[in-house]
Each structure stands twice: as C-alpha cells, then as structure tokens.
Simulated assay, not measured.
Amino acid sequence: FSSITYAILASSSSLYLTTQLGKLKPKIDAINKREQAEFKHSLASDLYLAQSTNTAIAQYLLADRSSSLSSEQAVESELLNDSVHQGFSENVDSVQNSSELLNKSVQTVQNSSDNELSPLAIEHFEDVLDALEDGLSDSHIIKNVMGFKNYRYKEGKNVLNEIKRFIDLDG
C-alpha cells in the first residue's frame, strides 16, 4: 500500500511541476527573445555608427584626392619637359584609379547600411519591443507608444514594419 501511495504522490507532484514549468516557458522564451533583440539592436547601433564614421572618412579622402588631383593637373599644364610630363601622367592615372576604388568603397558602405535600422526605428526600438512583448495591437503601438497620430500614422506604420522585419530577419 505504501509503494502505491508513494507512486501516486510522485506522479502527482511530477504533473504539478510540469504544469508550472509549462506556464513559465512562454515567459522564458519572451525573455530570451528580448535579450537577443537588445543585442541585435546594440550591434546594429554600433554598426550604424561605424558605417557613418567610415562614410565620413571615405568622403573626406575622396575630397582630398579630388583637390590634390586638380592641383596636380594644373602643375602638369605648366610643365614643358616631356619626360617629367610622362612620369606625372602616370601619377595622375594612379590617383584616378585610387579615387575610383574609393568611390566604390563608399557605395559599398552606403549599400550595406540599407540592411540596418533607420535612425527613427532605432529611437523607437526599445519601446516597440516592449509593446510587442506585451501583445499590444499595431494601431495602439503606432498611436500611443510611438506617438504617430493623424497624418503621421503611415510613417509610424512604416517604422513599426521596419522594426518587425529587423526582428524577424535576424531572429
């Protein structure tokens, strides 16, 4: 009789604990998803800042190369010696080639930033993430959480979709 009682108590306690763990699983999943989204957000912010810095550096170098190229071309027109002119022409060609490479790298940096969040989406990312975890409707998030009402509703809808797309693509 005691072994039957023990078996019933063990199975009932096991059933109770399984039920309690089942209630905790969605909360644990939500916490894990939030941690992943926050990490992706901080990583995206860091990448956005790095890309902005790289773009600024590339534009500065491009402007610097362009100004040095124009000054070198002015000096070239004043030179009379053919041998000096030939060597200078090769230098101008190498500057033009490096200028083209720099232009391509600037375009690559700008194209890679298309996969990142816009500054407006970054600004509202945390609040939208909290609201999505709470199960609020899109309309409520756009109007009350993000503050896009009336004529700005469509803009808010676009930002919300961008954040959702970012979470789903990276999630």
Score class of each variant (00 low, 15 high):
3 S>I: 13
6 Y>W: 09
8 I>P: 00
12 S>P: 02
14 S>P: 01
14 S>Y: 08
16 Y>I: 10
17 L>V: 08
18 T>N: 08
21 L>F: 06
22 G>W: 03
36 Q>F: 10
43 L>G: 06
46 D>S: 12
47 L>E: 09
48 Y>K: 07
54 N>A: 13
56 A>G: 15
59 Q>G: 03
59 Q>F: 03
62 L>G: 03
63 A>W: 02
64 D>H: 14
70 S>I: 03
73 Q>M: 01
74 A>L: 15
75 V>P: 00
76 E>P: 00
76 E>F: 01
79 L>G: 01
80 L>N: 10
80 L>F: 04
82 D>K: 14
84 V>I: 13
85 H>D: 10
86 Q>R: 13
88 F>M: 15
88 F>D: 04
92 V>E: 02
95 V>F: 06
96 Q>S: 09
97 N>M: 12
97 N>S: 11
99 S>H: 09
105 S>G: 07
105 S>F: 11
106 V>K: 14
106 V>N: 14
110 Q>L: 15
110 Q>K: 15
116 E>I: 15
120 L>Q: 15
120 L>C: 08
121 A>T: 02
123 E>K: 15
123 E>V: 07
126 E>A: 05
129 L>I: 05
133 E>R: 13
133 E>C: 05
136 L>D: 02
139 S>A: 09
140 H>D: 05
143 K>Y: 03
146 M>H: 01
151 Y>L: 07
153 Y>H: 08
160 L>C: 00
160 L>R: 00
161 N>Q: 09
163 I>Y: 00
169 L>K: 09
170 D>S: 10
171 G>E: 07
